[in-house]
Design a protein around this nucleic acid. Structure first.
Lengths: 190, 190
DNA sequence: CCGCTTGGCTAACTCTCTTAGCCTTACGCT
DNA sequence: AGCGTAAGGCTAAGAGAGTTAGCCAAGCGG
């Protein structure tokens, strides 16, 4: 009986892939075990619990989204960068719905929680985008939260099929980007 | 052995309350049964399944949010109405996190799904808010989706404890409202 | 070649959702 | 008042999820 030879990273990556394929809600320890070619209890040699697994998948989702956004804004600035960043987040969520769904509804256990760290790093590229606008330093946190709220909100609602007539979502997305861009420019910088 | 005398509405309402108290993730048929003073299987005389229960709770969340927003904007218009509506949604989500969490991640089964109907009706007040701005008719859908995305995003992230330094969220919220208001005014109405 | 760590396995327990089938309460109707 | 029936409880039972305990073999270091 040859060993499969798993390790934590392999298991978590497989879990993330599986969640993307079948939907986060249908991700189960048994299905993941089957996927990686192992019996269910063997997974516990690599992850502490299902909750642990989910948090690791969520961290993967956060850093993946961050990487996608980061490379999308390379060489761009201003409205261009904003649009590219938002589009990158949206595309990532649509391409990896399971990974991203794992991030929703998880309370960080503390500021040094790896998930919290990944979340901060993942949203970092938005800070770079904001430097292309005239934002008062004291307002940076607010602006960052605003961007995150708007684009996270849009992506998750769309990903869950929550827009009633799912026609024209591309156009709606562009409209949202334009709204934010316009607002960031017109807002008095104090 | 006197009957408890439940009906569907009572069970669903109790489920919504319970979810608000202990968190949506911890809502279970057994706990709900205990709460209403009945054995678990008896619940199935009133709801078809746990999924059915959740959808009904979600509908309650949607219409509750809609009512809260609707009455908040009474007699207001323009920026005032926008701010009141956004605040009402945020307050509702913070006061009823379980109810609202139930609405996330549920695919509508069709356009006549009671949940979908409740969702449309719940977001209707935002349409009234938008009439206070100069929006082209063709852009109404986009604007509605933008508002929903931004405020839903903010409220859910905040409710899940997702803002890193949870200080100054009030201020961040006002900043977001102001950003949207500014954008809606400055955006060319075509 | 020995021994220890690593990574599998089976068995077993708990808890959750759900169905089936029974029984009695309470109400409507004569 | 008394009967019939639907509604609303109950127990029993089963499938499937997560998890723990304890065993055993593979594969590496000395």
């Amino acid at each position: 009986m040859p060993r499969v030879g798993l390790d934590t990273d392999t298991v978590v990556a497989a879990g993330a892939d599986l969640a993307d394929e079948i939907g986060f809600a249908h991700l189960t320890m048994a299905r993941l075990a089957e996927r990686v070619g192992v019996r269910t209890p063997s997974l516990y040699k690599h992850v502490a619990s299902q909750d642990d697994l989910v948090r690791r998948i969520a961290a993967l989702g956060m850093s993946g989204a961050g990487d996608a956004i980061g490379s999308a804004i390379q060489g761009r600035s201003g409205r261009d960068a904003l649009s590219a960043a938002a589009r990158a987040l949206r595309d990532f969520v649509l391409a990896h719905p399971g990974r991203y769904a794992a991030t929703i509804g998880l309370e960080p256990t503390g500021p040094d929680d790896p998930l919290a760290v990944a979340a901060v790093k993942g949203m970092e590229p938005f800070t770079a985008v904001l430097r292309g606008y005239d934002i008062a330093p004291d307002d940076m946190t607010h602006a960052l939260r605003a961007l995150r709220s708007a684009f996270h909100g849009f992506a998750t609602i769309e990903s869950a099929g929550g827009f009633q007539w799912s026609t024209g979502t591309d156009e709606s997305f562009e409209w949202l980007v334009d709204l934010i861009d316009t607002g960031l420019r017109a807002k008095p910088a104090g």
